[in-house]
Design a protein around this nucleic acid. Structure first.
Lengths: 148, 148
DNA sequence: GAAAACAATAACGTTTACGTTAACGTTACA
DNA sequence: TGTAACGTTAACGTAAACGTTATTGTTTTC
């Protein structure tokens, strides 16, 4: 179990950010000491890193991430056998909604990857052109040395 | 040549955003009408789309994008034969700096793609689990119909 | 056991990337 | 030809995501 400073170091976020994320309901440290200090477990850390990754990779807002997580949480509850009183039909509806959401996100992600690989190719092209130009210049410099 | 509203439609940005980008020096419409209306060419549109893509894909700030572009512009000048008075050594230095910057960005991009494909795999896993669960539930519902 | 280091909450401040409104000139068209 | 519809600049407003500071309590360390 870590206190907030350790958690900050392990995640690369600031302490302020961690408190802010908690305020938004995105991250809940597993416990508090008697005196009120936040305590983070390794699981908490992993969760925070996942949030950070989602933010950076998908460019999602913290609110969007929270919405995603709330949905995922619903799914966890269903999987673990809560929702006893709920009919199979209603469960099916929930699952279908989840599936739709995930598919949409998956599509978004896929599109993003495609564009990224285009960009990557673009960079590579530029890099090879630069490398060629560099060789030309180096040759030029060698020549100047020989015949001043 | 398009006026600002057309340019906004073609790029998916707002008119305000286009003016803002211009304020930052990120985008310069090729011309103005006599009365002061901004006029965008297809090349301008392509450039704007590139800026937008970089923003969305790399999550770069507009300032970072501008810095990148300024460097790229320097390279263009060099390639097109300006920099007459500049010695080969100095040109080589500029190219080396450019190369370093691009390599760093390339690495960043590559890392991002790796993480993204992890995330994609994660989504796919979740999706197959959901699909399986859905089939189970559907079977359950069928059974209930037969033996009520 | 006193200082230094770390924690908490609360509240105000800041940056980025625009949105919105105002006041005014330009273009298109019925 | 007048009135929408579109353009301009200027200036103030705003949401998100924290940063910073103040005040106060806790833990660690010498």
């Amino acid at each position: 179990m870590y206190r907030i400073e350790e958690a900050a170091k392990k995640t690369g976020l600031t302490k302020r950010a961690l408190r802010y994320y908690e305020e938004l309901g995105l991250v809940n440290p597993s416990g508090r000491t008697e005196s009120g200090y936040r305590m983070y477990t390794d699981e908490d850390i992993a969760h925070i890193l996942h949030v950070k990754n989602t933010r950076d990779l998908l460019g999602a807002s913290l609110q969007e991430i929270k919405d995603m997580m709330d949905l995922a949480h619903k799914y966890e509850l269903l999987k673990q056998g809560y929702y006893q009183g709920v009919s199979a039909e209603e469960k099916l509806n929930l699952l279908t909604e989840l599936e739709r959401t995930l598919l949409a996100k998956r599509g978004f992600l896929q599109e993003k990857m495609n564009k990224l690989s285009e960009l990557l190719a673009n960079y590579d092209e530029k890099l090879t052109r630069i490398a060629r130009k560099k060789r030309e210049l180096q040759a030029e410099i060698e020549n100047e040395k020989e015949e001043p």
